[in-house]
Amino acid sequence: MHIQGKRNAVRILFILAKAGEPVKRSAPADTCLVVHAEKRLQALDFWMRNPDYLASEILNQFDADPTQKKLLKIAETVMDGDEPDIRRLAMQRFLFGAWEALDDAIATLSLPGLVKMERKYSADGSKIRQTSYYLTVEGKTKAAELEKVEPLDWYAKRAEVVAEIAGTRTGNQLKSLQYQVAQYNDARHGSLIAPIRAEVEERLAKLQVSA
């Protein structure tokens, strides 16, 4: 295949566009949204790539507040048909630190000036304290354009859901949550994360009945 993983870049672009928080005054010029911490970006990306885990979180929130009927609807959409399987992009490694590098995607995005990555280091410069991913104004504009392009519009929509579900929780919080779910469902086999589609479907079915 001639095409190299450009859609990864698309995915990350939309994550930043939908889940980024507005920048502060100390942000680089021409940026509008930011996702602080690689972990958070990765966790959000995890939900993009594993619809069954996303649905599981949606149902958790529904359990917490059953009046939120729309959550059930969203979960249904997420779990619709073969979506969870088709849309799954398997994560090879899941250990702390050995997360999939987003470097290529970021490079693709920063080249045309859509995204700026900034690293903050420790006082002595030996450790990365924080990586921040800024969406530029140009990035936001292009994202809006791309949103209308099929079949990439799916990623925009899904990024919206992920953003909503994630809320303002930190990367650590999201990651540990995801670990727990994997653990709970015996889906964490060493370094691999297995799908939990069947369990989530069952849960969804039960909730649909009672709703």
């Binding site: 295949m1 190299q4 079949p151």
Partner: peptide, 23 residues
């Protein structure tokens, strides 16, 4: 999907003018 998406993505990024070196 991959073919379609990658194709579209490539097309999109191809249209974009490189701005600054990622490195």
């Amino acid at each position: 999907n991959a073919l379609a998406e990658e194709s579209a993505a490539s097309h999109f990024f191809g249209l974009l003018k490189p701005h600054s070196c990622p490195r």
